[in-house]
Amino acid sequence: MPDIVRITSDELVAEISSLGSEMQSLQTTDGRDWLWNGDAAFWTGRSPILFPIVGKAPGNHIAVDGVPYEMGQHGFARRAEWVLADASTSTCRFELESSQDTLKTYPFAFLLSLTHSLEGHSLTVTAEVENRDSRPMPFGLGYHPAFLWPLPGGEGKPHTITLDNGAEPLLTRLEDGLVTRDKLPSPFSKGHLTLSHDLFEADAMIFAEGAGKGLTYAAEGGPSLKFAFDNLPNLALWQKVGAPFLCVEPWHGTAAEAGGSAEMAKRPYTTILPAGEKVRFTFSVLVTG
Rank of each mutant, 00 (worst) to 15 (best):
D10V: 00
S17D: 11
G20R: 00
W34N: 02
G38H: 10
P48R: 12
A63C: 12
V64W: 10
V67H: 08
A77Q: 06
R78D: 00
W82H: 07
A85Y: 03
S90E: 13
E95G: 13
S98G: 15
D101N: 09
T105M: 11
L111F: 07
G120S: 09
S122C: 13
A127N: 01
P145V: 02
A146F: 00
F147D: 09
W149E: 00
P152R: 12
E155M: 09
T160P: 00
A167S: 14
T172S: 15
R173S: 08
G177D: 02
D182Y: 10
F188T: 10
K190I: 03
T194V: 15
L199E: 00
F207A: 02
G210M: 03
K213R: 11
L215E: 11
Y217V: 01
Y217A: 02
G221H: 09
P223K: 08
P223H: 09
A236H: 08
G242A: 11
P244C: 10
F245I: 09
F245L: 05
C247F: 06
W251T: 01
T254V: 13
G260L: 05
S261M: 12
S261F: 03
S261E: 06
A262F: 06
K266W: 00
Y269D: 13
I272P: 05
G276N: 03
E277Y: 07
R280I: 02
L286N: 08
L286P: 00
V287F: 10
T288Y: 03
T288W: 01
